[in-house]
Nucleic acid binder design. Sequence first.
DNA 1: CTGAAAGCGCTTACAG
DNA 2: CTGAAAGCGCTTACAG
Lengths: 344, 344
Amino acid sequence: MITSKKLAEMAGVSRGTVDRALNNRGNVNVTTRQKILEIAQLLNYKPNRAGKALVSQQKKIKIGCIIIDARNPFYDDLYRGIMLKAEEYASFGIEVLVERVSVNGKAQCVCIDRFLAMGINALMIQPVNEAIVTEKLRNLTQKGISVVTTNTNSAGFEPFCYIGNDFFTCGKIAANLLDLFTNGVCNIGIVTGFRKAQSHVERITGFEEYIHDHEGMRVVSIVENQDDEVESFSVTKRLLEDHPKINALFLVAGGIYGAGKALKAFPDRYIKAISFDESPTTKELVLDGTILATICQQPVRQGCLSLEVLFDYLIDNKRPSSSKIYTDIHIKLRSNINLQPGYQ
Amino acid sequence: MITSKKLAEMAGVSRGTVDRALNNRGNVNVTTRQKILEIAQLLNYKPNRAGKALVSQQKKIKIGCIIIDARNPFYDDLYRGIMLKAEEYASFGIEVLVERVSVNGKAQCVCIDRFLAMGINALMIQPVNEAIVTEKLRNLTQKGISVVTTNTNSAGFEPFCYIGNDFFTCGKIAANLLDLFTNGVCNIGIVTGFRKAQSHVERITGFEEYIHDHEGMRVVSIVENQDDEVESFSVTKRLLEDHPKINALFLVAGGIYGAGKALKAFPDRYIKAISFDESPTTKELVLDGTILATICQQPVRQGCLSLEVLFDYLIDNKRPSSSKIYTDIHIKLRSNINLQPGYQ
DNA sequence: CTGAAAGCGCTTACAG
DNA sequence: CTGAAAGCGCTTACAG
């Protein structure tokens, strides 16, 4: 293995100088620097991660994490992913602070300020889409604190890296499944969460793009359930009553349990339904056949990846391959919804 | 952070003694050992990975990898996964040796012997299912060399860890998809690779278990294509000619391109076809609608995981959570077959 | 059975 | 602009 010590010997300088040259810390004579870089290149020198990690512990690196606090098992999975990595990184001397904050821009900002006071070096956040948060995150970036946004993004903010889903493609896949389940002929009812929520809009846009060149597929009506189970039950029920021809249902966001209850009120309509994510109630609906497929987005992995990206950057100065990392999209049916996910 | 140095101070002994006690290296007075373990437990001591990694480099750890050499892009992906990790571990001073060997038990054994002579500490292998290989792998295990089997296993051999697919469940999922695509009513033709290949048999068993309680689904005939494209074309063509009622096709293994060609000869039959993996030719068949869905098994990730498991064990003495790690099963349709996989 | 010393590869003050 | 020394947390001979 080629080490910085060997490099120093070959260049006839000290290891300190090698370090300064390779890491652009200044205070190196230009020609000396050139020489060192050349030799490093020639021997394909790669700094040893273990050595690097050991000394970076002295920096007492802290990573702050803010995830949304709401009654949604999806967020619990995100949390689990974070904790998995937090534990691993503890053994590298890195401290990970995690806070669950309600869906509220101000509350998120307060938490960020608290993290700042504690001296975090990087932040992972599932941001609420409010101007006040965008502003705050921009501020952090200016201060040199890298921000990773997970699962959602704050409009107009350019994070160090976004980690999450490609909502547009998810919508397309939903349409593709309905196409296959109905032999390309269906009257579709769409139940969305909020007409304005960016992720919900993107899913519907992807869905519509797919059916655009599938003549037999038609959207009959779109209703909104505010991500609320009770509301979802009543709007879905009314939707199905008002449109007896609907034989396919696209459940865009929350309120799946409520919609499922409504579906069960029309057992003889054989409506093909598609949903997202796999909360326990959704799982049950897939298992009992009310929902034929649900499209999942690896929340645990999103949590893991967010910390991995920051770790690699803080310890190794290694940037992610892209500023957007999309997790895999899993189609789950009755026969695979109960599988343990592979190693996260 | 709590370090072995701190532990030593608290127990009033040297770091050497702490090390011997915690790692069961012997030569420690029983009561001293007890005391050290107690304190470690109390303070929830976790050894620092960076420190451990740094010293384990002096062992010059070598991992040997043997994957099958055949014209199958699946194996290339496995190779890519291995190389990804090999590069990462190089920066931990670990050497990864990779050989591609033809489907031949003796050739694999010769390669293993070569690796032994080079002093490998662990082996990753995609074993050929022959007694001679099983025997050799058992031998390695006895010598204290951990063996991970990837993608397939050698009958009767208990590896340190198996990493790959759950073929049985894959078969079930295939049946589940056909169920959904045909509204539960179909006459199925099955094209398998080899009647005796374990993985092919398992996929068919899973498939049959699913249709067992789905009255409308019926298997009309099973044919064998020897994983050969030309053979596959002719047996599939004959199958469809002989059974005009077949409206669903289950492609169990290789020869997908040939089967696709045969399918195209019967455009007016609208046969619903399902396959496995995503070689370039299979991708094309999914994109042009000949195959509706293909079930994929993350070969790159299988390669990565195999090395990860060995790394964690060699460096950290950490065993995998289970002796079988199944990678995720991805259902790919026209709308998601061209997506880049998330971070491997 | 135990401890003191040296070393893994890297970076960080500090003295010059 | 440069080098010598110390140190991160762990393990490994070696001397007693």
